[in-house]
């Protein structure tokens, strides 16, 4: 079940990155190099309750977040503030979550979504946070993006 869920999460994240933030993500490679998280890393999470209960999250490097915000604001990454970059990844996860929950036309699910939360942590703390959780690492325009599921 977890494997199915993480695959779904990978799929919808790639679609949302392309469709919303105009960013290209590559799915995890089997036998690829282990992902090296950025230092600091931003952990973004969102929880949901109702017909399905749990949460999803992503660990992103600030440069990816800045690039996503730059694309969405139609600006250059250097013009983007930390607040804008953090807000952009929270909104991105919010959209990913909507797609993830209702993937495969499961629109009958009745879900209450939480508000996305973000914390900036050291690389080791990010690794500790996701340890043991179902996870998959994408590469988005050269930067790692780690997706994970919280039950």
């Amino acid at each position: 079940m977890s494997a199915d869920n993480i695959n779904t999460l990978v799929e919808v994240t790639i679609e949302v990155l392309e469709g919303y933030a105009f960013m290209l993500g590559d799915p995890p490679k089997t036998g690829g190099k282990p992902v090296v998280l950025a230092d600091p890393s931003w952990i973004v999470t969102i929880s949901f309750a109702g017909s399905r209960v749990g949460g999803i999250g992503m660990v992103v490097s600030p440069p990816i977040a800045r690039q996503a915000a730059a694309n969405l604001y139609a600006r250059e990454p250097a013009e983007i503030s930390n607040d804008q970059a953090q807000d952009a990844v929270k909104e991105l996860l919010n959209i990913v979550c909507g797609h993830y929950i209702h993937k495969d036309g499961a629109n009958e699910a009745v879900i209450d979504f939480g508000v996305p939360a973000l914390q900036s942590v050291a690389r080791e703390d990010a690794a500790r946070y996701v340890n043991g959780k179902p996870q998959a690492a994408l590469v988005v325009e050269g930067h790692p993006l780690l997706l994970f599921i919280e039950d």
Binding site: E18, F22, M23, L24, N71, A74
Partner: peptide, 13 residues
């Protein structure tokens, strides 16, 4: 899909 995404980025910008 990627061709289309990059195109949309250009029109939006």
């Amino acid at each position: 899909e990627r061709n289309h995404a990059v195109f949309r980025k250009i029109t939006w910008k």
